[in-house]
Design a protein around this nucleic acid. Structure first.
Lengths: 155, 155
DNA sequence: TCCATATCGTGCGATTTTGCACTACATAGT
DNA sequence: ACTATGTAGTGCAAAATCGCACGATATGGA
């Protein structure tokens, strides 16, 4: 495989990923209560999937967004009572983000609200097909994550 | 597979896709000349990959973004001389978007500028692995596209 | 032909995202 | 202990995104 073919292949891959992301985002956003963005939900989801009690800085690195963006997103979550910010006992500069009961409930509800869309899609794209690509996607994500950390000098 | 398992599977899939998209976007954005956004490039790429001479409305549907967003993006491309907007002889309400020579050159250059990043990634994630997931991704995208068109009443 | 309805693009304001700069705090070296 | 340097979070302003509404044009039916 020539370098040019490789570039073309990966480029097409990122293109497909971008379109799928755009489409899923649009559907999801349509199901969320007005005022709540996909960013809000994504953070809530991360706090549960990984763990809460992380600092805003850690979250901004995890999502690869500037600190100010995460600050703004968290402010929105706090004002809606979906997360709590408490001082970090171990470091006076930073805070720690904790998900509230309302936050957990909101996430559960949000997931349920898109369930119908997902189930409908599953009748066109077989679950087996999706399950088959997951390992590769996870591997690609991990590799890109590693490169990013290396590039950011956090290795 | 229970409905709940299906939802969880597809949900995880969209999550992975979102993260990969975020990471690739961040890298790409860092390589583009300041002032030019990924959105700008994506439109240029679409005009070449599909065809130019489309209307702004068609583009906004293709990218699943509001008309106003596409209008803004196109205005930026026009002001940089990367695309041209000409009236649509077949419909006085709409315009048609044509990519300029400068636009083609810009796209080529942009692709070349991220080639090093892609080649580096290809040494960690084997091209075979990426090539293997492409058919499934294309199929999923097509299915979601079809659902979207149906939902938007454009079937 | 004339009119009611629908579509295309855009101006406007609100929200989100982002870079820059600043304050508060932490850490390492002296 | 003190100072220099680095890091965490936020205020601010610029840019991107988006919903709403309007003017211009198109389409279908009376």
């Amino acid at each position: 495989m020539t370098p040019e073919e490789i570039v073309r292949l990966y480029f097409g891959f990122f293109n497909e990923v971008g379109i799928i992301n755009q489409l899923s985002r649009a559907v999801f956003e349509g199901r969320l209560s007005p005022g709540v963005t996909v960013s809000h939900f994504t953070v809530l989801n991360h706090l549960i999937r990984v763990r809460d009690g992380q600092t805003p800085m850690t979250l901004s690195l995890a999502f690869q967004v500037p600190k100010t963006t995460m600050s703004h997103t968290l402010a929105g979550l706090v004002s809606r009572g979906l997360v709590e910010m408490r001082p970090n006992p171990a470091d006076g500069r930073s805070k720690r983000v904790w998900i509230t009961e309302a936050g957990r409930a909101f996430r559960e509800e949000a997931i349920l609200s898109i369930a119908p869309d997902i189930l409908q899609l599953s009748q066109v794209v077989e679950p087996d097909r999706v399950a088959a690509v997951m390992p590769a996607l996870e591997r690609i994500r991990q590799a890109m994550d590693a490169e990013r950390l290396e590039r950011d000098g956090l290795s």
